[in-house]
Amino acid sequence: MSDIMVDIQHLSFSRGERLIYDDMCMQVRRGKVTAIMGPSGIGKTTLLRLIGGQLKPDSGQILFDGQNIPTLSRAELYQARKKMSMLFQSGALFTEMSVFDNVAFPIREHTRLPESLIKLIVLMKLESVGLRGARDLMPAELSGGMARRAALARAIALDPELILYDEPFAGQDPISMGVIVRLIKELNNALGLTSVVVSHDVTEVMSIADYVYLVAEKKVIGHGTPEQLRQHKSELVQQFLLGEADGAVPFHFKAEPYEDELMEPAR
């Protein structure tokens, strides 16, 4: 078994006319938390969808456990997806099912376990995210943080090898943010799974990630352990990590010179 779980080689992807990734490479190590950071709007979620096979790249390879995802047949892709799991930003819980049924959904779909055993597994997963008491609630009755934890329980229901987190910290209050940070770390260590976290929350990511990729301008602009990144020489990396408003990424959207535009009516 190779040490590398996901190996992205020379990936190019464009949406319509717009190029999103240009010849990008990155590796995700087995059993580690790998974070992908970058400013919003650079297609971090797109990257997760590419790994999940929901989108096809223009060129390049995405190797998951040795299989090249874009070239898999439909049936092989569905087999591969059973080994991975994705936590959506919105949670994506099924609104017409209770929390319990949501967590039980993948188990019921992919196994023929008896209902009594399913109940045990679901309670176990709910316990691990601290929502065992909320099993009978409907998704509409959950707060944002609880919905994300319930979705996390569903994501680990079938004990995947890889779990993809899409902006797990976005829009959370500090307490639920702390809870989720702890859960990601604990699940990764306790279940021995591999995690990919896509986020732009620098402090949280730096605290849990084993390895960080910084993506901007269609490619990886810096990577390394959190410690290495803090020492990084690139101006862009430093600007992002420190959260400065102006710098290598300008504060202003590309525009005509300000003076010209102000003077225009006068002309």
């Binding site: 969808r49 999940g52 929901q54 569905y78 087999q79 997806r81 059973k82 991975m84 799991s85 994705m86 959506f88 930003q89 919105s90 994506a92 819980l93 099924f94 609104t95 959904f105 993948p106 779909e109 992919h110 569903r154």
Partner: peptide, 13 residues
């Protein structure tokens, strides 16, 4: 609400 996408990622068509 990404429920269809989520289902697809759970290997359910």
């Amino acid at each position: 609400t990404e429920q269809l996408s989520g289902m697809e990622m759970m290997a359910v068509d």
